[in-house]
């Protein structure tokens, strides 16, 4: 990955030097060995701090929304999954495609931070990462560590659909094979839950939603959630809240509705980047919820994962006369 990092820094520095962009949104090394954090490089000097490691999990496409009302030319670094977010935001007319330089990175999968930190001292300094196809070699100042991809990658990466960005202006670094095994069932988790008894499913989601803190981190990180004013943040006086769809109260029944309403707001727009589940402080398996609609849409209406194709029309904005129906 060393080669890709160098190329990334060089390209970013070039873009900033020529003033083609005002800011390059990328990642930099975080406070411990297994953490990379979003980084906004605005000068050539800062561009040298950009990095690319198997810990660059954040989907940076969301940050483009910070500039949707100005005309700042930007560059953003994306992995395959994040690149679907670019297509989606352009389709939602959140910004014009020409204003953004997309730097695409072919991705060999992201390592699960928890699993890495079980082995590696968090205080170690990451020196070099080598992608050997089926494993990652991490070279730190406290020794070398090998991680088998099948064991240590995030589950979303083992189900990866596009490891090469679907949209980019500049492809950076060498092509790498997809971390997903061949013939893998992307929706295995959803299918597993579907086969359970309704009562079991009911308890499963009851338990998860009851723990929800209503912190809205899932919404804030979501590139599909790009409304200027969110339906969950309407300023309604307390005595009127009963008349609303849902109050801000943290209550199991209300949390249920919150998640189902959000689910339908992102249906056909969720790009399956898995950020919601990652940022959830109480680890609600939100991906399994959003992927249910994605799976049904694929099976019933042959819809691709949203954001795959810049020309596509979102699921709930289109119809065909031969769509299946169950109305009687």
């Amino acid at each position: 990955m060393k080669q890709a990092v160098e190329e990334l820094r060089r390209q970013a520095a070039g873009l900033l030097k020529e003033e083609r962009v005002k800011c390059v949104i990328g990642w930099t090394q975080g406070t411990d060995v297994a953490r990379a954090v979003p980084f906004f490089a605005t000068s050539v000097r800062q561009a040298a701090r950009l990095t690319w490691t198997p810990f660059c999990v954040n989907n940076l496409s969301k940050y483009l929304l910070n500039h949707r009302y100005d005309n700042t030319p930007l560059a953003v670094v994306v992995k395959g999954c994040d690149s679907r977010g670019i297509n989606r935001l352009v389709q939602d007319r959140q910004f014009v495609r020409e204003r953004v330089v997309v730097l695409g990175l072919p991705c060999g999968g992201m390592l699960d931070r928890e699993k890495v930190l079980r082995v590696v001292d968090p205080g170690a300094a990451l020196q070099e990462v080598e992608d050997r196809g089926s494993e990652y070699m991490l070279r730190t100042d406290k020794g070398e560590y090998g991680f088998e991809k099948r064991e240590a990658l995030l589950s979303k990466c083992l189900e990866c659909e596009h490891n090469i960005p679907v949209v980019s202006d500049l492809m950076i670094g060498p092509q790498v094979p997809s971390p997903a095994g061949s013939g893998i069932d992307r929706f295995a988790g959803v299918r597993e839950l579907e086969t359970r008894d309704p009562a079991v499913r009911s308890t499963f989601w009851d338990r998860h939603f009851a723990r929800c803190l209503r912190c809205y981190a899932c919404r804030n990180v979501c590139p599909a959630c790009n409304c200027k004013e969110c339906s969950f943040e309407q300023a309604v006086p307390g005595w009127q809240q009963g008349a609303c769809w849902l109050s801000k109260r943290n209550h199991p029944g209300q949390n249920y509705l919150f998640h189902l309403i959000r689910m339908f707001h992102v249906a056909g727009r969720c790009i399956d980047c898995g950020e919601c589940a990652r940022v959830c402080p109480v680890n609600i398996p939100l991906r399994e919820l959003y992927r249910k609609v994605m799976k049904d849409a694929e099976e019933l209406f042959a819809m691709k994962t949203p954001g795959t194709d810049p020309e596509e029309v979102p699921l709930l904005s289109t119809y065909r006369t031969d769509d299946p129906e169950e109305f009687s």
Binding site: D296, E326, F327
Partner: peptide, 22 residues
């Protein structure tokens, strides 16, 4: 179709939710 499938997925009993076009 998506709604009824989702509601069953999150644990509503099959048959409790129904949509008809009349």
């Amino acid at each position: 179709m998506l709604v009824s499938r989702l509601l069953e997925y999150v644990g509503l009993e099959p048959g409790r939710f129904e949509m008809r076009w009349i």
